[in-house]
Simulated scan of single mutants.
Amino acid sequence: MYAMPHGDDLDQRFNELVAQIDAEERRKMRAAAKKGAKTRGAERSPGFGHDARLGMPSERAPRRIGRAWPAVAGITAVIAAAGAVITLRPDLLPAVAGPVPEETMPVVAAPVPLKSLTSPVSTEPLGPFEGSKAESWAEGAAGFDLPEAKAIGGLSKQDVAKGLKRTHKLLAAAFLDRKTILGGRPTAYMDLLHPEARSRFRKSLDRKDSLRGMLTSFAPKTAELVGDVIKVNGRAKLSSYKKDGITGAKVEINYLVAYAIQRPGQPATMTRLVTHNRGTMLMYREGGELVTWVRELGGTATPARCDVDDGYIHPFYDDSAPSKVRPEGPPQDPYDLDAPEFDGECGASEET
């Protein structure tokens, strides 16, 4: 419990405290956290694949993983300062309808001595990706660099170009659409699917085995984007395809997408979450129509919780409660595009 100080203007104290946590201070704290960071446990959130002809889940089901263990003290000062203010100012908490998700609940921490927050205010903003491996990546849809179109698998160059264009739009809708990312209805993605696949996807959204895990979609009220930039890096391979009576082309995708997120309304919790997305898109003609089909799509997310499996990504913040599931295997670099595909319940990951 915190005693409310007599004679203090809480609004003024709040603004003064926040003003002292400048960009340079946050940079030093994140640098200290990275230097002394412990290995994180990876978290599970299932992804799914599609059978090319029937639109049914394939046997192969990629998993989503992320970090599981609490952060070290390097970023405690900012979190503690926010915690002290929130404890005194419950009106600052975001309004939430229904039960409050664990990820959005405030963290109670001891007050921070003002002498630790005396760095001069910097006028130069610090980007959320500065100093990370994602800093030099492309921004947004420009990062989904697809192969050049060519005649292949019985398709003309024009057909392949059209299929690649649709593939690019599908990737942007799956991993960059703001509404989808923040847990809304993934309309942008569904509108691009083949009618048969769209029907199956739509019906799955209200089921426990929702196909939403194919996309990047944070559980509602667990995250908000920091800034307008999403970083993308990766590659795709175009080749011919012939199986189950289908002849055409396939595009195998392998992309990393980095998001800067925070708990809603809580800037001190800012973190980077990286997804590693793999999948296969098919292009073929059926009844005279060119079809672009999502054969399979899924991947991993770091840091995300292992102990929630509802199709959404549940981000794991430095102040989150410990996971109920322990990670397995050696820690993997979440920025490694060539990392082996994870095929378990919960894998270990390095810091993002």
Results as ranks from 00 to 15, higher is better:
Ala109Arg: 10
Pro125Glu: 09
Val107Lys: 13
Glu148Ser: 11
Leu146Met: 07
Lys133Asp: 10
Pro147Ser: 00
Val96Met: 11
Thr104Arg: 09
Pro125Gly: 01
Gly140Phe: 00
Phe129Met: 07
Lys150Glu: 15
Leu170Ala: 02
Leu114Gly: 03
Gly163Ser: 05
Ser156Met: 06
Leu114Asn: 08
Ala151His: 10
Asp159Cys: 05
Gly98Asn: 09
Ala138Val: 06
Pro120Gln: 08
Pro106Lys: 12
Ala109Ser: 11
Arg166Leu: 06
Pro106Val: 08
Ser132Asp: 00
Gly140Arg: 04
Gly153Glu: 07
Val108Asn: 04
Ala110Cys: 00
Val112Trp: 04
Pro120Met: 06
Pro128Trp: 11
Leu126Glu: 06
Leu146Asn: 00
Leu117Glu: 09
Lys162Arg: 13
Gly131His: 05
Thr123Lys: 15
Lys165Glu: 12
Ala97Cys: 10
Ser136Cys: 10
Ser119Glu: 10
Ala161His: 02
Phe129Val: 07
Pro111Asn: 12
Arg166Gln: 14
Leu155Asn: 00
Met105Ile: 04
Glu102Cys: 07
Ala173Tyr: 04
Ala161Pro: 08
Thr123Ser: 12
Lys133Ile: 00
Lys169Val: 05
Thr118Tyr: 09
Thr104Cys: 11
Gly98Gln: 01
Leu117Asn: 01
Lys157Val: 02
Glu130Pro: 02
Ile152Cys: 08
Glu103Ser: 10
Gly153Val: 08
Arg166Lys: 13
Ala149Asn: 04
Lys150Ala: 14
Val107Phe: 15
Thr123Trp: 14
Pro111Ile: 12
Gly131Arg: 03
Ala97Tyr: 04
Ala173Gly: 03
Lys150Asp: 11
Gly98His: 05
Glu103Gln: 08
Gly143Val: 01
Thr167Asn: 00
Gly131Ala: 02
Thr104Glu: 11
Lys150Asn: 15
Phe129Asp: 05
Pro128Thr: 06
Ser119Pro: 00
Lys150Val: 11
Glu139Thr: 15
Val100Ile: 14
Lys115Gln: 10
Asp159Ile: 00
Ala134Glu: 02
